[in-house]
Computed example of a mutant assay.
Amino acid sequence: MKPPILIIITSTIISGTIVVMMSTHWLMTWIGFEMNMLAVIPILMKNFTPRSMEAATKYFLAQATASMILMLGIITNLLLTGQWTMLNNQNQIASNMMTIALTMKLGLSPFHFWVPEVTQGVSLSSGMILLTWQKIAPLSVLYQISPSINPNLLAIAAIASILVGGWGGLNQTQLRKILAYSSIAHMGWMAAVTTYNPDLMTLNLMMYIMMTLSTFMLFMYSSSTTTLSLSHTWNKFPLITSLILMLMMSLGGLPPLSGFIPKWMIIQELTKNDMIIMPTLMAMMALLSLFFYMRLTYATALTLFPTTNNTKMKWQFESTKKMILLSPAIVISTMMLPLTPMMSILN
C-alpha cells in the first residue's frame, strides 16, 4: 500500500474512533463507527490474497449487521424519548438492542465466530490493529451507556465469552487464532465489570492493549505465525524466548506480572457487589486460557527441536524489522503490579 493512501486510511480510522469517544449524540457516534469500519477494511486487505479478502468480507458483514442493530436501537430510543443524547437512555428495549450491537462489534459470545476467522485471514500487523484499536470505540460507548445496561444480559455474554475464549484456544496451533480467542476471553472480563465499575473496564482495556501489542510485536519481529515456527525462536532470538514466556504468563493473569492487576481488581469489585458465584466461575474458566498460554510457553522456552548438525546456532540474516516501542511495551506489560494500590485509589 502506498504511503499517502496508508496515511489517509489510518487518519480515518483514528478520527472515526475519536468521533465515537467524544460524541454524546447518537447519530455522530454511529457515523464514527461507520468511518472506522469502512477505513479498516483496506488495512485488513493490505497483503491481498483470497484469504484476506474473505476475512475482510466476514468482518464487513459482522460489523454492518451490528451497525444496523445499533441504528435500530438508536431509532427506537429516539421514538420513545424524543432525543438523541447518549446520557439519558431510559428505555430498556433500546438499551438491550444497543448492548447486543456493541457485543457483536466487540466479538463477545455468542457473536464471537467472526473474530478468529478474520484474525487468522489477515497479516500480523492488521490482526494487531483488529484486536487492539478496534476495541476502543465499542467499549467507550458501553462505558457511556453503562447505567442503563441490563446487567444480567451483559453478565451472560461475559461468562460465555470467558468460557469460549478459554475453550476455543485449547487445540489451536495458529498464533493469530490463539490471540483472537485470548481477546474474546479478555473482552468477557471487561464486560463483566462494566455495569458495576466502568473505570475498571478502562483499566483492563489499557492493560490488555499493552500486553497484546507487545505479543504481536514479538511475533512480527520473529516472523512467527504458528506454534512450530515459534518453537524455533530459541535458535534465532534467545532473548525473545524468555520475553514471550513472561508475556504469556502476564496474559494469563499470573502474579507478580501486570496481567494479574485487572483480574484481581475485577474479582474484588464483583465480590464487593455481593456476587460470589460469578467471579468464582470466571476465575475457574480463566484457567482454560492459562493452559493454552502455558502450551505456547512450553513450545517456545522449554523444548528444543531436533538438530542434525553440531552447532546450535544456524546461519541467518539479522532481523531488519524495527519495533520502536517494543521495550517500553514489554516493561508495562510485565512489571506494573507494584502500582496496583495507586490504581485502586484512582478507581
Rank of each mutant, 00 (worst) to 15 (best):
I136C: 03
P338T: 13
M343F: 15
I9A: 02
I31L: 10
L70F: 12
T226W: 01
Y298P: 09
L337A: 08
D274A: 11
K263C: 03
P3L: 07
Y143H: 12
P306W: 03
F219T: 04
L326T: 08
A185Y: 02
I332T: 13
F292R: 07
I145Y: 02
W133T: 12
L38M: 10
M265W: 04
I244K: 10
I277M: 04
L245S: 14
I332C: 11
S319E: 12
S231K: 10
F111V: 10
S224R: 02
G32C: 04
L87N: 13
W30M: 03
S319W: 10
F237H: 15
S183L: 06
F113T: 10
I13R: 00
P338G: 09
L106R: 08
S148L: 07
N347W: 12
A64Q: 08
E269W: 02
L339Q: 12
S222T: 15
R51W: 00
Q90P: 01
T297M: 15
T194I: 15
F305G: 14
T29N: 08
P306D: 06
I266W: 02
S182T: 13
P4K: 03
K177D: 01
G166Y: 06
A66L: 04
S95G: 11
P341E: 08
A155K: 14
Y298R: 15
S146I: 06
I7N: 02
T29K: 06
T49F: 02
T202Q: 14
L78Y: 14
L251S: 08
M323P: 00
L288E: 06
I100C: 08
L106E: 06
L257S: 04
P110G: 05
Y143D: 09
M248E: 07
L213E: 03
A39K: 01
F305Y: 14
T119G: 01
L257M: 12
W26H: 11
M86F: 09
L257G: 04
M249R: 11
L6Y: 01
V40A: 06
F305T: 15
P198G: 07
N88G: 07
M35W: 07
W264H: 12
L325F: 14
S223P: 00
L230M: 13
P341C: 12
M187K: 05
K46T: 11
W84G: 04
I8M: 05
T24V: 10
H25D: 14
I178C: 05
I149E: 07
T308M: 11
L251M: 13
M220R: 13
T311C: 09
A180P: 00
L304Y: 13
T119S: 09
W264V: 08
W30S: 02
Q90E: 11
V19A: 11
V115A: 04
H232K: 15
L61E: 02
A66T: 03
I31Y: 01
A180V: 05
M104I: 13
G32K: 06
T280G: 11
V20N: 02
A180R: 07
Q174L: 11
G169S: 04
K272V: 10
N36K: 01
